[in-house]
């Protein structure tokens, strides 16, 4: 599986981690950090560059968080969500 790292360094430095995205704020995926079993799966789930993603809800104990993307609601733990880089739109 190819490493998704298309974004130039400067846009990458502007990018937030998905975990730092406030709830209710819309964002667009920039990249997924490569190098973990989670990376490939996050891409397969649709966290590909340009995909719109929205943080919807946090579990009462703070983790995981429900995100909305591609017409589905998906919950991710911090460990996985922090691998996704986004920028706010």
């Amino acid at each position: 599986m190819s490493a998704p790292d298309r974004s130039p360094n400067e846009s990458r430095s502007n990018a937030l981690r998905l975990t730092d995205l406030p709830l209710g704020a819309a964002a667009e995926v920039v990249s997924v950090d490569p190098g973990s079993p989670a990376s490939g799966r996050l891409l397969d789930l649709g966290f590909t560059p340009g995909t719109k993603v929205l943080g919807v809800r946090r579990a009462p104990l703070g983790d995981p968080v429900v995100y909305e993307l591609r017409g589905m609601r998906l919950c991710l733990r911090r460990t996985e969500a922090s691998r996704v880089r986004v920028h706010r739109v």
């Binding site: 973990s36 079993p37 989670a38 799966r41 996050l42 789930l45 995981p64 429900v66 589905m72 609601r73 998906l74 919950c75 991710l76 733990r77 460990t79 996985e80």
Partner: peptide, 8 residues
């Protein structure tokens, strides 16, 4: 652990 994700 493997990645955790779950659809609601």
């Amino acid at each position: 652990s493997l990645p955790f994700y779950m659809e609601l």
